[in-house]
Amino acid sequence: MANTPQAKKRARQNERRAAVNKARRTNIRTFLRRVEEAIASGDQTAAAEALKVAQPKLMRGVTKGIFHKNTVARKVSRLNARVKAIA
Rank of each mutant, 00 (worst) to 15 (best):
K64F: 10
K84N: 05
A11Y: 04
V53E: 05
N80R: 08
E49G: 04
T71I: 10
F31E: 13
N70C: 06
A81Y: 02
T30C: 07
Q55H: 09
R82K: 10
T4D: 11
I28F: 01
A46V: 03
S77I: 13
I66K: 01
A18E: 12
R74A: 14
E37K: 15
R24Y: 05
T63V: 13
I28N: 06
A38E: 09
A54M: 04
K69I: 12
Q55N: 14
K9C: 10
R17L: 11
T4W: 01
R33L: 07
R17F: 07
A48G: 01
A40G: 14
L79R: 01
H68A: 15
N3P: 00
S77M: 11
G65R: 12
T71C: 12
V53F: 01
N70R: 09
R33I: 05
R74H: 12
M59R: 11
L58E: 12
L79S: 05
A23N: 08
A2C: 08
L58S: 08
R24D: 07
V62H: 01
R17P: 00
P56Q: 02
Q44H: 03
K8Y: 00
A50S: 09
V83D: 15
A54I: 03
M59Q: 14
P56N: 02
I28Y: 00
V83N: 09
I28P: 11
I28M: 06
N27S: 09
R17S: 11
N70D: 11
A81R: 11
E37P: 00
K64C: 12
R82I: 12
N14G: 15
V83M: 10
R10C: 05
V76I: 14
G42A: 13
N70Q: 09
K84F: 03
A81H: 06
I39D: 00
N14V: 09
T45V: 08
V20I: 08
A23I: 04
K9P: 13
A87R: 11
T45A: 13
N27T: 09
A48Q: 01
H68C: 09
R33F: 07
N80L: 08
I86Q: 06
A87S: 12
F31Y: 14
A73E: 07
A47K: 02
D43K: 00
V20D: 13
R12W: 02
V72K: 07
K57N: 08
I39M: 00
A40H: 10
M59T: 10
A73C: 05
R29K: 05
I28W: 01
A38M: 04
G65D: 15
L32E: 14
A46H: 00
V35G: 02
Q55S: 15
A50W: 03
T26K: 03
A18M: 09
